[in-house]
Computed example of a mutant assay.
Amino acid sequence: MNEIFDRVLMAARKLGASDVHLKVGRPPIFRIRGQLRTLKDVPAMNSDVIETFAVNIMNQRQHAIFMENCEVDLAYGTEDGFRYRVNVFRQRGTTGMVMRIIPSTIPSFDRLNLPARVRELADEKRGLVLVTGITGSGKSTTLASLLEVVNVNHPAHVVTIEDPIEYMFEDKRAIVNQREVGFDTMGFRGALRSALRQDPDVILVGEMRDHETIKTVMLAAETGHLVFSTLHTVDATETIARIVQMFPHEEQIAVRLQLAAILRGIVSQRLLPRADGRGMIPAVEVLINTPRVQEMISDMHRTHEIVDAIKEGANPYGMVSFDQSLTNLVRRRLVAYEVALAASSNPADFELAFRGVTGGSGDDDVEFEL
């Protein structure tokens, strides 16, 4: 049974898909360059096939979680060395699955089309670095590339806490210990508290999901560690607001002061289809925590000014706003104007700069021989 799905996943990789959707009554559906595409001439999948595959790739604990919660996250590896982040869930009484394809090698930072200033965040000695964006915006890939910069260049002890482990690191100058929730630890909070007793230099927390995890992450950054993590927020201003709002009202002033002191930078991403059709490319907002930004984080009445600080912070700090990033991508002919306009933070202002630039579109279906 797994051989059928391995062929589906091989087809997805060859077509450059980022995700595979498996739903009863439909053939496999791939997300390619941000668009959902249906495989032509492939029969619909029935419930027995999908459910059997789902059960086969779960261990006993994951199956128990699925039976209790009707959903579970896990990682799946094929014999040819490829890995997938999997969510199995129930919908309308049947089992469904979405599988995120994890590249077999960690992409070098230079291949990601990210601002050079982002790479420098990996050279920080302590503090908090956040990578934010919606699901599928490339957060995990950016974090992996930054950790690989640490791995190659610094004799450090790196501890990662992930759910599940995605990219696999090989020790270079650094020692990298990767802990997977559900296999190596029971949860983010406990693993993070334990990590502080494991002589770490750098800690990666896959996601700051709750108040206690955020509190411990901030403590780790405050006590001399470099901490990387993610949030599902769209930009720097929302990220700061989300962190503060996770705390009781009476603690929020202190949290703002603490965050202003430990934050090193926020990288927010939106993935867009490339104009040449060769995959996706990130538009990136970069906030660097300068003394001016520290004041804006500390004062709730000035946090909205961060947007202007980013726009004005290119020199000498290397900051960039989303619209500045999009403008650069259009001028370099990497993203079509219409795509950039739809993704811009201020479409009216963005439109003024690019009147008359146009782009193209693609088909809904793709062909591949399984």
Results as ranks from 00 to 15, higher is better:
341 L>N: 00
132 T>Y: 10
196 L>K: 09
211 H>A: 03
164 P>T: 01
98 V>W: 06
170 E>M: 01
34 G>I: 13
132 T>Q: 06
312 E>M: 15
39 L>A: 04
159 V>Y: 10
366 V>W: 05
267 V>Q: 01
166 E>G: 07
299 D>R: 15
365 D>G: 04
305 E>Y: 11
318 G>A: 12
241 A>K: 08
334 L>C: 00
89 F>H: 13
100 R>N: 05
311 K>L: 10
320 V>Q: 14
357 V>N: 03
173 R>G: 08
334 L>F: 00
262 I>L: 07
191 A>K: 05
32 I>F: 03
318 G>H: 13
332 R>W: 02
170 E>I: 01
275 A>N: 10
120 E>I: 02
244 V>P: 05
282 P>Q: 00
279 G>M: 04
143 L>D: 09
85 R>W: 10
244 V>M: 03
267 V>W: 09
349 D>K: 08
18 S>E: 09
126 R>S: 15
96 G>P: 04
146 L>Y: 07
137 S>E: 06
243 I>M: 11
175 I>L: 14
154 H>A: 07
157 H>N: 15
262 I>D: 07
83 R>S: 12
199 D>V: 14
120 E>F: 07
212 E>D: 15
289 N>Q: 03
340 A>T: 06
91 Q>G: 00
94 T>L: 04
367 E>N: 07
182 G>D: 02
244 V>F: 04
309 A>K: 01
333 R>L: 00
303 T>S: 15
73 D>R: 10
9 L>I: 07
336 A>I: 01
37 R>H: 14
173 R>S: 13
274 R>P: 09
74 L>S: 12
295 E>N: 08
365 D>M: 15
209 R>E: 07
112 L>F: 13
239 T>C: 11
155 P>D: 12
286 V>I: 15
346 N>K: 05
265 G>N: 09
292 R>P: 01
7 R>H: 11
132 T>N: 09
249 H>Y: 03
14 K>C: 06
245 Q>D: 15
252 Q>D: 01
144 A>V: 10
227 V>Q: 14
146 L>M: 09
286 V>K: 01
263 L>W: 07
32 I>R: 00
94 T>K: 11
56 N>S: 15
37 R>V: 05
59 N>E: 07
113 N>S: 14
140 S>Q: 01
93 G>A: 11
278 R>C: 12
52 T>Y: 00
293 V>N: 06
88 V>K: 00
58 M>P: 05
165 I>Q: 06
135 T>K: 06
133 G>C: 05
193 R>N: 14
346 N>L: 09
75 A>Y: 02
225 H>Q: 10
14 K>M: 10
329 L>R: 01
98 V>D: 08
